[in-house]
């Protein structure tokens, strides 16, 4: 039986992620694991995350998951979610500056507390919280069956800014246009929470379980 491992590094909403994967698993076994060797053996891997990046990175490194992630992406599909996406970048400005895993080139920036809608000049709340639209910027197996501009659930104050725009798989507008999803090789990552985005989000997980990577 094929397996998908959800990396458990003590942070984040693993239960929600695991429950959503189980809902669409059909023949794939869902494992939640804090054991790097068990994660290495899985056929595909999800890196979830919520909370502050410094605490997340500290635990990822302490448990050795930074190396595991670097190894996995050479030949297996990896899905990063929210802070799990941000952790894949080089560096985040959060918590006074935090080094991240660095398998995707780019930084994680802050929306700022003076964010405004460029059309109406209305002040925008931070965190960006709720259902917003993902504009698909490339065709990708992960978008199969998902309408362009479909709404997903976001909750974050920081956003990913890749070095090259060619890595962006979807963008979203909130004061600025920011990266809603990113992909390179075997990596796909979303700023939104597919596990909290109802049917549309479950479709993302279903696609991930079918995706062969690259």
């Amino acid at each position: 039986m094929k397996t998908v491992a959800v990396i458990d590094y003590g942070m984040g909403n693993l239960h929600s992620v695991a429950k959503a994967l189980e809902k669409v698993a059909e023949g794939t076994k869902v494992i939640v694991s804090h054991d790097p060797d068990e994660v290495r053996k899985a056929d595909r891997v999800v890196l979830p995350g919520v909370g502050a990046i410094r605490d997340c990175m500290a635990e990822i490194i302490r448990l050795g998951f930074d190396d595991v992630v670097r190894e996995i992406v050479k030949n297996k599909p990896l899905l990063g979610v929210c802070v799990g996406m941000q952790a894949l970048m080089d560096f985040s400005v959060e918590n006074g500056g935090t080094e991240c895993i660095g398998i995707l080139p780019g930084r994680v920036e802050f929306f700022g507390n003076e964010l405004r809608d460029p059309r109406t000049n209305e002040r925008l709340k931070v965190p960006h919280m709720g259902w917003n639209q993902a504009h698909q910027t490339i065709e990708h197996p992960m978008w199969q069956g998902i309408a362009d501009d479909a709404r997903f659930y976001f909750v974050h104050s920081y956003y990913v800014l890749p070095t090259g725009p060619e890595l962006i798989a979807a963008s979203c507008d909130y004061g600025i246009s920011f990266t809603a999803a990113i992909t390179q090789g075997n990596v796909f990552a979303t700023q939104f929470h597919p596990e909290k985005s109802q049917h549309t989000g479950l479709a993302v997980y279903a696609n991930f379980l079918k995706w062969g990577g690259e």
């Binding site: 709720g130 917003n132 501009d149 709404r151 976001f154």
Partner: peptide
């Protein structure tokens, strides 16, 4: 179009 107002 952008962030939707939520009904809870």
């Amino acid at each position: 179009m952008g962030l939707a107002k939520r009904i809870i």
